[in-house]
Design a binder for these strands. Structure first.
Lengths: 116, 116
DNA sequence: TGCGATGTTCGACAGATATCGAAGTTGCGT
DNA sequence: ACGCAACTTCGATATCTGTCGAACATCGCA
């Protein structure tokens, strides 16, 4: 059977109601992924390759997958790029205040590299 | 040289200002540790062995160490027991709103076992 | 002083994870 | 049509992590 019948493997996202808190916290506990989330909280949409992180493309792809499966981000196809967005509204619905507090905590916590 | 010159290895806690957000999120992303934190958020103090978790004592001790080193809990010696407390005030000072939101998210998220 | 209760440390181990390079897919421009 | 740009998938690897049982330390009590 063909490996890819669609453009790429259409990524699966959890429904808002199925987003798991522990998965979210775990996803956020990695510096690379936190940087991605911080960047997206300051900018609505961004291409995968343009995040201020210093890892190989394959590694970055892995982190996107973790964030996607945790329900934190969504991807939108455009040309041969993938634009990434935060599922901020979904997260606010599922865990009110969580994303806001975490983003603020990181920014205020003095461990960020002035994201945004 | 003696392995223990004090009562037990006096545990080291990070200063409030040194509490790292990613360490906190990582500590909270484990179900056993989350249960401990939830329990402590409903009850001020508790002996190590009395938490509603189902792991071996040595495993529990490991989780306490992770929580301690992340800055989430403190231990107080009493007789031959160790009483555990949440560093709620310190966390509130360092990351305002974080603990409250996370505790509420877990309780409201439908993955808890009615802690407290 | 010896024992039991309460925890911690150690050593082992299986499974998860962060990382990379190589190879593959898709779409745009030339 | 060819190649480049942008990502993903695969395979390998080193490290981390959650788990346990065994052994040890400390305290209170008989």
């Amino acid at each position: 059977m063909p490996r890819t019948s669609r453009r790429r493997e259409a990524p699966q996202y959890p429904d808002t109601a199925d987003i798991d808190l522990l998965d979210v916290l775990h996803a956020l506990s990695d510096p690379t992924r936190m940087t991605i989330v911080q960047t997206l909280s300051a900018e609505p949409e961004r291409a995968c390759g343009t995040f201020p992180v210093d890892v190989a493309p394959s590694t970055l792809s892995h982190h996107f997958k973790v964030l996607r499966e945790a329900g934190l981000i969504r991807h939108r196809e455009e040309a041969n790029r993938r634009l990434t967005t935060l599922r901020a509204a979904d997260l606010e619905e599922r865990f009110p205040g969580l994303l806001t507090v975490v983003v603020a905590a990181y920014r205020g916590g003095g461990q960020e590299g002035s994201v945004g």
